[in-house]
Structures are given as C-alpha cells and as structure tokens.
C-alpha cells in the first residue's frame, strides 16, 4: 500500500532540492515569481509529508479505524 521509507526519503530530498533550487533561481531573477509560487505550491506539501514519512512510516500491516471506546 505505502511506499518504503527509503522511497519517502528520496521524495523528501527531491522536493526539498527543488524548493531550494527554486529559491535561488528566483533570487537571481532567473525564474519568474509565478513559476516559483507554482513550484512551491506543488513541492511544499510533498516535502512536508514525505519528510515525516521518511522518519516514521510503518512498514507492516494496516489497521482498522477507531470504532468506539
């Protein structure tokens, strides 16, 4: 169901890398602002989640939802 932890690490690294590259490109006026904004809107959520999942994704059986106390 879920990807493995190392895949998440790769994903976090890739999206983080894109954000940093975008930051410098925009800083040096190589990238228009709207493109940087679009990049950030796409990459920031992926980065946030995959960073956490790289840290703590569980790699065995899923569980059922909470059904009451």
């Amino acid at each position: 169901m879920m990807l493995s932890k190392s895949r998440f690490g790769l994903l976090a690294f890739a999206s983080g890398f894109l954000i940093v590259i975008g930051f410098f490109l925009e800083w040096g006026d190589y990238l228009p602002f709207w493109a940087y904004a679009a990049l950030l809107v796409c990459c920031f959520p992926v980065f946030t989640l995959s960073l956490g999942l790289w840290w703590m994704a569980r790699e065995h059986e899923e569980d059922i939802p909470f059904v009451g106390y």
Partner: peptide
Amino acid sequence: KFSFKSTWIPATASG
C-alpha cells in the same frame, strides 16, 4: 510530535 509518530493508512481507507 505528530510528525514522528508511527504512521500508516487504515485498512478501510481509500488510500
């Protein structure tokens, strides 16, 4: 705290 809690997708969820 939440970002270093063990995480998975519930079995019944639409993944």
